[in-house]
Design a binder for these strands. Structure first.
Lengths: 357, 357
DNA sequence: GTGAAAGCGCTAACAC
DNA sequence: GTGTTAGCGCTTTCAC
């Protein structure tokens, strides 16, 4: 056994020292509208005793009694894998700040056990849960319906278990459309749409893909099979791609990191963005100001969404049953990585120049 | 009052349904070497009853009883302000992964109340604490000595309250020296050392500054007052600096974000890095591969340090009283942002070219 | 106004 | 081997 927090003083000891009852101590220290009233003199006495003894209330016991923990859980599936980039920093920070402001603590949950999900969610430790990028699989719907505590899905879209949770999402469908429209207005006719292997199943991906396809259909942009790709970005996909001398004049990427990798590769191959190739990404955090060229992006308000998720959750915890969904609008953040399509792009001379250099 | 997790089944109900005692249920479900032994038949019966009732143990009650929460706290002072960049992502992810592997949960703590710090640390909710960038102020030392739970300081150096905690740090002193040596070997004689306003008081900053000064002294590099600056990077410090036509031929920055901002500004002013100016930064995460030019860095093993912090803490929690400190070596990661000092740098022509463009 | 006592759900020591 | 019971530390109802 380790040296434990066993030595700590209890409420009982404070009561004894002050010569009053436990109830009196509890009432004074919680300073709530209690049924009992304490004279200022004894209140002062109690305060002093508590101070003398360095009394600190045990949160476990209090929570057990009150059924309140002031602690909410945040689920990141794949936390370890995809935390690269500004997206998760802003999301996490947004959630944390809003929580702290309201005197709540934040617990990060590892992947929720799909077999015994309730073990993490229903064990009394959490007042509520925010689940990022909630997948739409049947087992998750099952979890939702059996979840005994308030639940908010962030960056996810309503499922069949719609009434069991509130959903906070960005208009990814509309965002993808904006991207296509922007490229269409610039004159692009052949687009590449890239998804990320690790996140191909998240709700945002499906929405963006749908938006891409619909916008292309509306604007008479032809879409072939090879115009939609799923990359892991750890193989030589990019090199292979460029050396296949593709017809695409513009690429829509999954996120800024993905775009960053692409920009790097392009640069090393002597491909100039946006002159030879336009690139547009999702998210639009401070990262997109740091790439060269700066990234044109579809913006989604990551931080606001995080704040909204917390507010919705806390409202639910406080008994408001409105499980209103929110879909945040996206917009185009124009920077320097998109322009008109190249007139006479000659892949071989571009790639040859690279070899000779 | 909200709809609460009150409806959940208790161990008692399971016992009743299985027709056995509570003790039997507890023993079976915890499957520990208990003093009591259960026949396989009744064990099966109990398992079934628990399953039928969707029983999930209440963690609050269990922790209250066992004095164990399987939850550790992570303190980020300034969490909101300085979370930009890869440093915190790697740190956080490193801590989280190692914790999850050991069946611990992670709670993020907002700024610890300096007046009543024990309220967050001694309230029974946490088995231990990791405090990032622990400052060396007297009140913090006081907190340390009164902290009732195991404590590890990450990215911090031993204070007077040395025996009260374990310290995990990188050799920032040596790292700063490496940076100066590298620049010295390239021929630089006038160096600028930049610190960050928000973090000028963290232990790493002091160590780096000391390393910088000592290395310069050893290598006969002159250091004047204006060669050490504290920037907030939200003003026009950089512009003012460059337009003052400084003599420095190389800059050592606080972190990659800082360096990134600097690179951007330089580029917009037509200053070419590293031809006109060498830049070297601390940290060396994946970010430094994405800048243009790629950043030469002093590497510190952020993730390993996070892992070590968790391991040390868990060891302490399990009763090992060794509060061994670790100082991780740093190294130079050579990339493209440093080279020999410019021979005849003409600020006016560089900055004029910018105006005309 | 104040104090005694019940009990949140669980575990572990101790009788059977 | 199995069941009974005493609390962990707190809040809150109910008599005084």
């Amino acid at each position: 056994m380790a040296q434990r927090k066993s030595g700590s003083t209890t409420l009982k000891q404070v009561a004894e020292r002050a010569g009053v009852s436990m109830a009196a101590v509890s009432a004074v220290l919680n300073s709530k509208k209690s049924s009992i009233r304490i004279s200022p003199a004894t209140a002062e006495l109690i305060q002093q005793a508590a101070k003398d003894l360095h009394y600190v209330p045990n949160g476990l016991a209090r929570s057990l009694r009150t059924n309140r923990t002031n602690n909410i859980g945040l689920v990141f599936e794949n936390f370890g894998g995809i935390t690269e980039g500004q997206f998760y920093v802003e999301l996490l920070d947004g959630v944390a700040q809003e929580l702290f402001k309201n005197k709540y603590r934040l617990t990060i949950l590892p992947e929720v056990d799909r077999v015994q999900p309730i073990n993490s969610l229903g064990n009394g430790l959490l007042d509520g849960v925010i689940w990022c990028k909630l997948p739409q699989s049947p087992d998750v719907i099952d979890i939702l319906q059996r979840c005994p505590i308030p639940f908010v899905a962030l960056h996810a879209r309503p499922t069949e278990a719609h009434e069991a949770a509130a959903y906070i999402s960005a208009d990814n469908y509309g965002g993808a459309k904006l991207a296509v429209q922007h490229l269409h207005e610039l004159g692009h006719k052949r687009l590449l749409f890239i998804l990320e292997t690790a996140e191909v199943d998240v709700p945002d991906a499906q929405a963006r893909l749908a938006g891409f396809l619909d916008a292309c259909a509306e604007l008479n942009i032809e879409v072939q099979d090879q115009d939609i790709r799923i990359w892991s970005h750890d193989l030589h996909e990019t090199n292979t791609y460029f050396h296949s001398q593709p017809e695409h004049t513009a690429i829509i990427t999954w996120n800024e990191r993905t775009a960053g990798v692409l920009l790097e590769h392009a640069q090393s191959l002597n491909i100039q963005v946006p002159r030879d190739l336009s690139v547009i990404s999702f998210d639009s955090t401070s990262f997109s100001e740091k790439t060269s060229p700066r990234l044109t992006c579809i913006y989604q308000p990551i931080r606001e969404m995080a704040t909204a998720a917390v507010r919705t959750l806390l409202a639910q915890i406080n008994g408001e049953t409105i499980t209103q969904d929110f879909e945040y609008p996206t917009r185009l953040d124009l920077r320097d990585s998109t322009t008109e399509p190249p007139k006479n792009r000659d892949w071989s001379s571009i790639l040859n120049a690279e070899k000779s250099s």
